[in-house]
C-alpha cells in the first residue's frame, strides 16, 4: 500500500515535472522541471527493481546533463533569455501531441501484454548481472557506447573551440 502510494507520488512528480518543463516560459525553470522529472523517473526505476540504474540516472542525468545545460545557459547570457511565448503555437502543438497521445493510449489500453508469471524481485538482478551482461553478451554495446562517448567528447571539443585561423 505504502509502496503504491510512493510510486504514485513519483509518477505524478515525473509527469508534473514534464508538463511544467514543456509549458513554463523561462528556460531555467524549464531545466528545473526536467530535473524534477528525472528525479521522478529515478524513483520509478527504483520501484521497477533497479537501484543501480536509478543511481546512474541521478548521477549522469541530473548530475551531468542538467548541469551541463545550466552551464550552457550561463556561458551565454542570451541562451537563458526568456523568449516570447506564442499561445497559438502551444495550442497547436498540444493538439498534435494529444493526437499522438490519444492514439498510443488507446493502443496501450487495448493491448494484452505477455506478462511474466510473476514479476521478479529486485534481488534477482543486481549490479553483478549488469556488469556480466555488459562484458559478455552485450559486449558490442559496451564497446560501441565507449566509442560513442569518446567521439562525442572529441567532436564537442573540436566544434566548440574558438577558431584559430583568421583567414
Amino acid at each position: 500500500m505504502i509502496a503504491t502510494l510512493v510510486i504514485a507520488a513519483f509518477m505524478i512528480l515525473a509527469m508534473a515535472g514534464a508538463i511544467y518543463a514543456a509549458l513554463v516560459p523561462h528556460t531555467l525553470h524549464c531545466i528545473i522541471g526536467l530535473g524534477l522529472t528525472l528525479f521522478g523517473v529515478a524513483g520509478i526505476y527504483l520501484y521497477l527493481g533497479s537501484p543501480f540504474v536509478a543511481a546512474m540516472q541521478i548521477l549522469i542525468y541530473i548530475g551531468g546533463i542538467s548541469v551541463a545545460m545550466v552551464f550552457a545557459l550561463m556561458l551565454s547570457v542570451s541562451l537563458a533569455k526568456k523568449m516570447k511565448h506564442s499561445e497559438i503555437k502551444v495550442i497547436l502543438s498540444s493538439i498534435a501531441a494529444i493526437l499522438f497521445l490519444a492514439v498510443m493510449a488507446r493502443l496501450i489500453m487495448t493491448t494484452e501484454f505477455p506478462l511474466r508469471e510473476e514479476p521478479a524481485g529486485a534481488a534477482a538482478w543486481g549490479v553483478e548481472q549488469i556488469g556480466h551482461g555488459f562484458l559478455t553478451t552485450y559486449s558490442p554495446l559496451f564497446i560501441g557506447l565507449a566509442i560513442c562517448l569518446s567521439v562525442a567528447i572529441i567532436a564537442a571539443v573540436l566544434v566548440a573551440r574558438r577558431e584559430a585561423d583568421k583567414s
Binding site: 509527469m15 498540444s94 494529444i98 497521445l101
Partner: peptide, 8 residues
C-alpha cells in the same frame, strides 16, 4: 505523458 510533453 512524458513523451507527449517532450513533443510539445
Amino acid at each position: 505523458v512524458l513523451f507527449s510533453a517532450g513533443l510539445v
